[in-house]
């Protein structure tokens, strides 16, 4: 999979002029997803931004065969579709495309259930780190201290949960993190996931211009900064083997990372951070890196 392959693939499942906000990361992710998946797929979408992006009937913002479902039901609905397709001998990929709310919070029990059953589905969580569709309320994956409309002055008082690692611990065959700034990495991960029978999970980092308060032209730039400052770590767990992805490899050495301030200060949601807060976030990220490096060391079966 190369940039040329992606560009050549005509079908993307995403129509131009759909109702996504300017600079929306979901559109980027969906486009890559569509190009890799092709038309032999079904998308299950719980409530969230993508419910809007899909358009108001009779218009269509997305070209995937698509089932809109209530918030906490997506992974179960996908399991039902899979069972139905298996029963009647149809092939094709069943994908849940969800936000952080639908996966990490209200839909977590359902997601966990499907993972434990090792359902043959691919779950992609396009994580914009808050409930953006309802107007930027704090979620389980919102960063500590980030300003949201439910943490408007002091910022979020709780830590974020690491959904991808939680899913990894379900002993599923495939889990990975990805970023909308690294389309080839994402495309390869989707491609690999499609080859595997069983539960596949991809946690996609998706910076949201209105939600994070940055210019709509900078979505990819912010996503890239997250990786380059070490704030978002790209990794992959493939049937027993855990590895830090090439794009994040050089940031294992902290000296190669850009200063965390560059990422945080580019976003309005972090404008209230003190220097101490930034040091605290950095210390937490160092912990996360240690964790990831230890996982790589432990789960290095080739």
């Amino acid at each position: 999979m190369s940039m040329m392959d992606l560009a050549r693939s005509k079908w993307s499942g995403v129509y131009p002029g759909n109702p996504a906000c300017s600079g929306c990361p979901h559109n980027i992710g969906l486009k890559i997803l569509g190009k890799v998946l092709g038309e032999n797929s079904v998308l299950v979408v719980p409530a969230g931004c993508t419910s809007i992006i899909a358009g108001v009937w009779p218009k269509e913002g997305l070209g995937f065969p698509l089932l809109h479902v209530p918030f906490a039901s997506a992974a179960a609905v996908a399991s039902g579709i899979r069972a139905s397709m298996d029963k009647s001998g149809r092939d094709g990929t069943v994908v849940v495309w969800s936000g952080d709310g639908g996966a990490a919070d209200i839909g977590f029990a359902t997601l966990s259930g499907a993972a434990v059953r090792n359902e043959d589905i691919l779950v992609i969580v396009s994580d914009n780190e808050a409930y953006m569709n309802t107007g930027i309320q704090a979620s389980g994956t919102t960063t500590w201290k980030a300003l949201t409309t439910t943490s408007p002055i002091k910022g979020k008082t709780e830590e974020r949960k690491d959904l991808a690692l939680i899913m990894l611990m379900h002993r599923i065959p495939y889990a990975a993190t990805a970023s909308v700034a690294y389309p080839i990495d994402l495309a390869k991960k989707i491609e690999k996931a499609m080859e595997i029978r069983g539960f596949k999970f991809i946690h996609l980092h998706s910076p949201c211009p209105p939600g994070w308060r940055f210019d709509a032209g900078n979505t990819v730039e912010i996503a890239k900064l997250a990786v380059e400052t070490g704030a978002w770590i790209l990794w992959e767990f493939d049937r027993g083997r855990f590895s830090i992805s090439p794009q994040s490899r050089k940031y294992v050495d902290k000296k190669n990372r850009r200063p965390l301030e560059e990422y945080l200060k580019a976003q309005g949601r972090f404008k209230n951070l003190s220097d101490n807060d930034i040091r605290y976030i950095e210390a937490k990220l160092d912990e996360a890196w240690t964790y990831i490096l230890n996982l790589e060391k432990t789960l290095s079966k080739s």
Binding site: V42, V44, L67, V69, P70, A72, S73, A74, A75, A76, V77, A78, S79, G80, I81, R82, A83, S84, M85, D86, K87, S88, A109, T110, S112, G113, V116, R117
Partner: peptide, 24 residues
């Protein structure tokens, strides 16, 4: 038949909803 052991009643109806939408 396929029997899907789910985590809740909400998921139970969601699972058969998905299967029914797929024609089962």
């Amino acid at each position: 038949a396929k029997y899907i052991r789910v985590d809740s009643e909400h998921s139970a109806l969601a699972a058969v909803y998905g299967a029914s939408a797929s024609g089962s």
